[in-house]
């Protein structure tokens, strides 16, 4: 009976934990929005299982044996106390961590482990530059944004961005925008760009550079990958790692660790509050 009650307690704990995460909004730290409905549903499943465990415990109490079924597996948990402590401890550990430990966000420490991509999504390869003599306005735009069948969306999006006086890197298409800026860097050099994220630095960046980064998440934070844009600013070391900043600057290209990357020569840096969801998500419907 004690087993049933323990299990009921653990199941209820997990269900409450899920509800708690949704209530406090912390769920966005762990799970991408498109997975949230499933996690909500699983809370209901966990509740139902907890109720069943209480019911089974009561049945035990009244001397009835629970749903007899002689299938091969043991319904009876192991009699060893050490083993049970270990197993239930394993279940209680995430609950204890979740409820008791303070909640932070993923930041520089993990970004360094995973390696920040400073040139958008690497699955789109840059084409060698072709610059034929421009004839008309329309022609120029097409020449600036050459595309094949895979980069056609980025080229279209690039043309839209190109017409803007200031390019603000949006939350919703963070990766796609960085990828576009990187793909068509020749077109965008000299443009004004604004973006926000946390400060990330590597030793090689020195005192005058850092990267403004965001974690991009697909399903859960285990698959989150950091993307960023290099910032140049004379007093860059005034900003601590993991501080949230909004940066305005002019786009140019520099070389970093033997690669040519796009870089923002900052004209203005502002400290900002960390946004509610520190992550960005790949826009699966990205199409133009």
């Amino acid at each position: 009976m004690i087993h049933h009650l323990l299990r009921a307690a653990i199941l209820t704990g997990f269900a409450l934990f899920i509800v708690y995460l949704f209530k406090t909004g912390e769920m966005t730290l762990y799970i991408a929005p498109r997975m949230e409905p499933y996690v909500k549903l699983s809370a209901i499943g966990l509740y139902a299982a907890a109720i069943y465990q209480v019911y089974a415990a009561l049945q035990r109490r009244m001397g009835k044996h629970e749903a007899d079924c002689n299938c091969e597996h043991d319904h009876e948990p192991s009699p060893s106390i050490a083993k049970n402590t270990l197993i239930y401890g394993l279940f209680i550990l995430p609950l204890a961590l979740g409820f008791l430990a303070p909640t932070g966000t993923l930041g520089s420490a993990l970004a360094a482990k995973k390696g920040v991509s400073l040139s958008g999504s690497p699955s789109f390869e840059r084409k060698p530059e072709v610059s034929p003599a421009p004839i008309s306005e329309e022609k120029t735009l097409d020449a600036l944004f050459p595309a094949d069948e895979y980069t056609i969306d980025h080229a279209q999006y690039g043309k839209i961005l190109y017409s803007l006086p200031t390019i603000e890197v949006p939350e919703k298409q963070f990766i796609e925008t960085l990828t576009t800026l990187d793909l068509y860097r020749e077109a965008f050099v000299g443009k004004e760009v604004v973006l926000s994220g946390f400060v990330y630095r590597e030793d090689e960046m020195g005192k005058e550079r850092f990267a403004v980064s965001r974690f991009a998440m697909n399903c859960c934070s285990a698959d989150a990958l950091p993307y960023g844009l290099m910032i140049e600013w004379p007093n860059a070391n005034e900003y601590g790692s993991d501080e949230w900043v909004s940066v305005k600057g002019t786009l140019k290209t520099t070389s970093y660790m033997d690669n040519e990357i796009i870089t923002l020569e900052a004209t203005k840096i502002e400290r900002i509050e960390a946004p509610e969801s520190p992550y960005v998500y790949p826009d699966l419907e990205f199409a133009y």
Binding site: I18, Y30, I31, T105, L110, C220, S221, A222
Partner: peptide, 17 residues
């Protein structure tokens, strides 16, 4: 510790459903 906690719990939450 924060990274670990977030990764650990997020894998569990994602697998639950």
């Amino acid at each position: 510790f924060q990274s670990f906690k977030i990764l650990f719990i997020s894998i569990i939450l994602e697998a639950f459903p």
